[in-house]
Simulated scan of single mutants.
Amino acid sequence: MIPRVLIVAGSDSGGGAGIQADIKTVTMLGGHAMTAITAITAQNTLGVQAVHAVPVDIVVAQMRSVIEDIGVDAVKIGMIGSAETAHAVADLLDQLDVPIVFDPVMVSTSGSVLADAAAMAAFERLMGVASVVTPNIPEMAALGGEAAVLAHGCHVVAKGGHGEEAEITDRLLSPQGELRRLIGKRFDTVDTHGTGCTLASALATGLASGLGIEAAFEQAVRFVRIAIVNAPGLGGGHGPIGHTLGVVPFDELEG
């Protein structure tokens, strides 16, 4: 059966991140994407101009609708919108026995804040139900550091894209220690909008397909790096990556 991935996240009108990036990622990796939209945003490569939160009962109704009919093999959580939504989503997901990937979205690539203090405090609930949490460097610090996140019993993908080094190091951690690290060159580009959403959705699709956590991690990192290389160069700011524009030899990503 085709891997069924439920995405709980916000919509990006510019198509670079959020639900739009998630759907493209899941589809390109051979899965069936289903969505529960938590917020509607007006945004482009320059920033986020407006956000409209979807009522909590509608978010939950979207989730129940697909869970009860189509079924779910993995869940990806992105922009959550509010603390109330976070708790409601956690309550429902607590009833499922599938991999759950939580990308703790706080700030967009352009610097726009996408989670207030109350929502970030409620991330504790989501980390409690998550199988894997995928923070970038600033998000990891805001969550209290690696040890604090791992204390929830989940795996962690510690992303290195926000570092300053010439090479990017992405690490897969478990409560017992580091499982895997991938090192690749840093590309000289501003077209990285949607990388976090894409990695989390790629990871969820791999897990939904039956891959082990290490294999799913490697596939997700590789998919993101290929998409960065294939960024179409749209907009005047932080442009979207290229989910659907083909592939490049793996040695070009690593050399």
Rank of each mutant, 00 (worst) to 15 (best):
M127C: 15
G177F: 11
M1D: 08
A61G: 13
I100C: 09
K159L: 14
E167R: 12
E146Y: 03
Q49K: 12
A9T: 14
I80A: 01
F217N: 07
I77Q: 03
V54G: 00
M28T: 11
E68S: 13
V48A: 05
F187H: 11
P55V: 00
E214F: 02
L172E: 00
L93F: 12
V60A: 01
R225A: 03
V56A: 06
A215P: 01
H152R: 13
H238A: 10
G10Q: 00
F217E: 07
L92T: 10
V101G: 09
G30T: 06
D73R: 05
V229C: 10
E254K: 05
G153Y: 06
L203Y: 10
M127A: 13
A21H: 02
T205S: 11
H155S: 13
V133L: 09
R4S: 03
S108C: 12
I183T: 15
L211C: 06
S201T: 15
I213R: 05
I228Y: 01
A74K: 05
G144I: 13
L173F: 06
L199S: 06
G246M: 08
D188V: 12
D22S: 06
I19D: 00
T195G: 07
K159G: 03
H238C: 10
L234A: 11
S201L: 11
E252T: 15
G14K: 13
N44S: 11
V132T: 12
A216E: 09
P138T: 06
A202M: 13
G239F: 02
A42N: 09
I58N: 00
V59P: 00
S65I: 01
G31L: 09
G236R: 14
L234S: 08
A115N: 05
R171W: 05
K24I: 03
D57G: 01
E84F: 05
T244Q: 14
L6C: 04
L203G: 10
A53F: 00
S13L: 07
V113K: 14
R222H: 15
F250N: 10
